[in-house]
């Protein structure tokens, strides 16, 4: 049971990867990429969890209880915000592809010239 959260992370990552590879639509591919990223968050947060633990914030903390790993939480919180912005960039690229090439299908776009 103790590897279960890591398996969830692996499955999320692979499901997102399958979505990116099989995608017929740039917006779909962008969302699949964020699913892949969510896999890394699950892996990081699961790695930092402590059984019977509490948040690594000393203000209002209960004495005696162990604290969760703050390093992986710090990594995750910066990356969640950055992934939103990266998703915006991908959607902007999709928008441009629609406007210039008239399509959102990656395979059709490969045939568009100029």
């Amino acid at each position: 049971m103790s590897v279960y959260p890591y398996v969830v992370a692996g499955v999320l990552f692979l499901a997102g990867l399958y979505g990116v590879v099989s995608s017929r639509n740039y917006i779909h591919a962008a969302v699949c990429l964020t699913v892949m990223q969510s896999g890394t968050y699950v892996a990081l947060i699961a790695l930092g969890a402590v059984s019977g633990g509490q948040a690594p914030i000393t203000k209002g903390a209960q004495p005696g209880k162990p604290m969760a790993d703050p390093v992986v939480q710090a990594l995750t919180l910066t990356d969640v915000v950055v992934s939103v912005v990266a998703l915006a960039l991908m959607l902007a690229l999709a928008q441009q592809s629609r406007r210039r090439g008239g399509t959102l299908d990656p395979d059709e776009l490969a045939r568009v010239r100029g």
Binding site: M1, V3, Y6, V7, A43, A46, G48, S51, D69, V72
Partner: peptide, 18 residues
């Protein structure tokens, strides 16, 4: 999966840096 299963088991105490 090999790599993920080799991680410290879920809920174990934090590593040295943490």
């Amino acid at each position: 999966m090999w790599g993920l299963v080799g991680l410290p088991s879920f809920g174990s105490p934090p590593h040295a840096y943490a």
